[in-house]
């Protein structure tokens, strides 16, 4: 199934009310303008789905020189199969807790919204919950309550408790997309980092039918 580039995916979910980290795209190291560091740089294109596995993500860039090098390297790493590419530069978001949220098309029940704990153990732990799209604010609140690791939702190691209303808005937004956009097959917001209590998507992947 075709995917949207990360930049287009981010724009689509942001329009539905999902907070995403601030970003811009460049196609040449000469395009760089003043930025607040640290930032993350990633190769971005409609055909690039597994960036980390291919080493196409540079984290923790702290100055303009590093960024210029990163952009040059990433553009050089593109292969002809990747098609049209750019480099997506986004604010580096810090937070210890990672959630995963998304939308999938269930063969039996159709568009379905998911919320779970994310990070590298997400699939092994599978602390996840689902609702059919659209998702009401009550359903979204139930989803949050249903996660097993409730302690991770409260105040955690000096970090604020998760802002429930913000997270509810993310889930309701995903549900709206599921209910109204029949051309969308799946969305991954992975991870959704909790920064100062608020969920922020630092990556987004939209799959189309």
């Amino acid at each position: 199934m075709p995917t949207l580039s990360e930049a287009d995916s981010r724009t689509l979910v942001a329009d539905a009310g999902v907070p995403v980290s601030a970003f811009l795209t460049v196609t040449s190291p000469d395009d760089l303008i003043d930025l607040d560091f640290p930032v993350v740089a990633k190769l971005c294109g409609a055909s690039i789905a597994h960036k980390s596995e291919r080493g196409l993500v540079r984290l923790g860039i702290t100055n303009a020189d590093e960024l210029r090098h990163a952009v040059t390297d990433l553009l050089a790493a593109a292969t002809p199969d990747d098609g049209e590419v750019s480099v997506l530069i986004s604010t580096m978001i810090e937070g210890r807790r990672e959630l995963i949220a998304g939308l999938t098309t269930d063969p039996q029940f159709g568009p379905t919204v998911m919320l779970g704990f994310g990070g590298i153990l997400a699939e092994a732990v599978a602390d996840v919950t689902f609702r059919l799209a659209p998702v009401s604010a009550i359903d979204a609140a139930d989803m949050i309550d249903e996660l097993s690791a409730q302690k991770l939702l409260g105040e955690f190691r000096g970090e604020d408790a998760i802002d429930r209303e913000s997270l509810i808005a993310v889930l309701v937004g995903l549900g709206e997309l599921g209910a109204t956009r029949s051309d969308i097959a799946a969305i991954d917001l992975n991870p959704l980092i909790i920064a100062d209590g608020k969920p922020v998507a630092v990556d987004a992947l939209v799959e189309m039918h």
Partner: peptide
């Protein structure tokens, strides 16, 4: 499933 969400579903 290609997406993580799909794999968990």
């Amino acid at each position: 499933a290609a997406s993580h969400t799909g794999a968990l579903a």
